[in-house]
Amino acid sequence: MAHDAAKPEVTLPAKSTWNYQPDLPLEDRSLFNLRRGPAEGLKLLWNSWLPISDRLIVVGVSILTWFYLSPSLQTARTFGFDWVVGVYLRNLILITLVAGGMHLYLYTFKMQGDRLRYDARPFHKKNALFTFSSQFLDNVFWSIASGVTVWTAYEVLGLWAYANGYMPMLDFATHPILFVLWFIFLPFYGVLHFYWIHRLLHWRPVYNYVHSLHHRNVNVGPWSGMSMHPLEHIAYLSSVLIHVVLASHPIHFIFQLQQKVLLAVTSHAGYESVTLAEDSDTGLRVGDFFHQLHHRYFECNYGEPEVPCDKWFGTFHDGSEEATARTRVRMKEMRKK
């Protein structure tokens, strides 16, 4: 009882001004909820991939990338200007097609208006907080100058390591089931890695110097997802180092990098789904209200819903006003430290 009495009193905030929000409170989408039962958990896993999802699309892109847009391992045994620049240009084109295409569709031509858009406020212009005083130009610059560079560096080093036997290789013909299971495992591992890296990035000294660049974006768009400080890009993409110790195939390595980059783009789209018509509610789900809450309230929802780290460690925001009040109290307590 004494412990409860010591808790700070919270005051509920005024109602949030979201242009669109999913049904609240946010449902538990974790596969680790044992009360749900294994059958329901498998159903959630199935629905996260099929019949069509951005994650499944990235699997297809990574396979095409390996077979048609990557150097052979024989070529990658030695660093060469041609193939290294080729990987960089391919990654540059890929992020430009995805982030640039989504920005044109959703924000330049407004093909679905503000339907399913979380926050309808315009992006910042003539704001000294951003590089070039523009949120859009700031996001494009850091996504390309730092993001594509670090992404390419990891990929080039990884291909070189596979080619020279420094990373263990897993062959589809020998281990077909394990080969497929890698695609399912990597996103879950990526979420766990992201949660702890993200918590470190919110440590005040690191936040002020590094992560604050990403958090300039309270209202996010497609180019915001990879708009980060170079040190954050290095930390964020470091989850691929798991391939140094566990046998995998270059396709898995490429998939993990593309998933981290391209799904950061889509999850920051600012819309729940991309639709083919302005008056439609059906389309490819891209946005993540769970993470949108993090960009508005900062000290909550550090991970992703599939692995409930935020529930386990008391940082979950379910979109309710009560959760907002708790988060604001937590922010005040953190700033006193």
Rank of each mutant, 00 (worst) to 15 (best):
P222Y: 07
Y166E: 13
G165K: 07
G165W: 08
H215V: 04
N217Q: 08
L263Q: 12
L257A: 02
L237M: 11
Y189H: 12
Y189W: 14
H229D: 00
E232I: 00
M228A: 14
H175F: 14
H214V: 02
H249G: 05
W203A: 11
G225P: 03
S227M: 05
V240P: 03
L170S: 11
S239N: 14
S212D: 09
H243W: 12
H229T: 02
Y162V: 07
F253N: 01
I254Y: 06
I177T: 14
L181M: 12
L186I: 15
L181S: 12
Q256P: 01
Q256H: 14
P222C: 11
W203Y: 14
L186D: 05
L231K: 02
A264P: 00
Q258S: 13
S238W: 05
P250F: 10
L237Q: 07
M226K: 03
L181K: 04
Y236M: 03
H249K: 07
V265W: 00
Q259T: 13
V261G: 03
P230A: 09
F253W: 03
T266A: 13
V265D: 04
D171R: 14
L178T: 14
S239E: 13
V206F: 06
R216M: 11
P168S: 10
S212F: 06
L178K: 13
H214M: 02
E232G: 05
H252L: 06
L246M: 14
F194Q: 02
I184H: 07
N217R: 01
T266E: 09
N164H: 12
I184F: 15
L192M: 15
H193Y: 15
L241K: 05
H233S: 04
K260M: 15
M167N: 03
V265Q: 01
L241P: 00
P230G: 09
L257T: 06
M226R: 09
I234V: 15
L186A: 06
L200T: 08
Y207W: 12
W196N: 09
L246Y: 14
Y189F: 15
E232V: 00
L241I: 12
E232N: 08
L178V: 10
V206S: 05
L262H: 08
H193L: 08
P168I: 10
P205F: 06
H243I: 08
W182D: 07
R216F: 11
T174D: 15
L159Q: 00
T266S: 13
G190D: 02
A247N: 08
T266R: 03
S267I: 13
V265H: 03
Y189M: 10
A269Q: 01
F253S: 00
S239I: 14
L257N: 08
H233F: 00
P168Y: 09
H233L: 00
Y162Q: 01
I234G: 05
F255A: 01
L263S: 09
A161I: 01
Y189K: 06
F253M: 07
V210Y: 04
S224A: 13
A235Y: 02
F255W: 05
L178A: 14
L213D: 03
F255C: 06
A247S: 09
T266K: 01
V218Y: 10
H243F: 15
R216H: 13
H211Q: 02
L200C: 11
V261M: 10
S212Q: 12
V206C: 00
M167D: 03
Q256A: 10
L159P: 03
L237V: 06
F179W: 15
